[in-house]
Amino acid sequence: MTDLTPITALGGTIARVETYGALSLTENPAMALASLALRKGQSVPSPFGMTLPEPGKWTKSGAIGVYWMAKDQWMVEAEGRAEEDFARVLKVEVPEASVTEQTDGWAAIEITSSKGAAPIKALLEKLVNLDAAAFTHGAALRTGLEHMSVFLIRRAEDRLAVWGMRSSTETLWHALVVAARRLEDI
């Protein structure tokens, strides 16, 4: 591997972790990301043996997660593989499809709650205009958050991932921290 030292989207050499009340925010720089788009008329493939999810959904199998992005387009996540050329790995799985490296196009922030679903729901209500009660395990949506484009994934009732554009991670982190801090007494 290269002798250059990478930095996280927040500019550190290690992932930033902060906790406010029940909510912990963790930068996840190890998550690889690549987009998968179907060619015209292509049958829907099953990368890594997975069924590509319906609109608004995320599925996971082992270290691979997939969420719907647009018609005939998905994002494929791979835990711990950000240093690899994961797009190339995916392309081998779906040779007919268009695959694009997205790992550093976005930055993942994983949010976990130590008090179940309620703090995650409260956080969503402060940040994004979606029905937080209906945004349950396995839901994934792209929406606006403080004027930034984000993907939200409900990884579990007590876990939420926010993929934001890498360049604005500092603003995104700030927005999440401000909201989490205001929910400290929940």
């Binding site: 179907l38 694009t100 997205q102 196009g105 360049s167």
Partner: peptide, 15 residues
């Protein structure tokens, strides 16, 4: 829409 084209932004992905 009949063209076989896929688009995605990669502005942030590459320094």
């Amino acid at each position: 829409p009949e063209l076989d084209v896929q688009l995605i932004s990669t502005t942030d992905a590459w320094a």
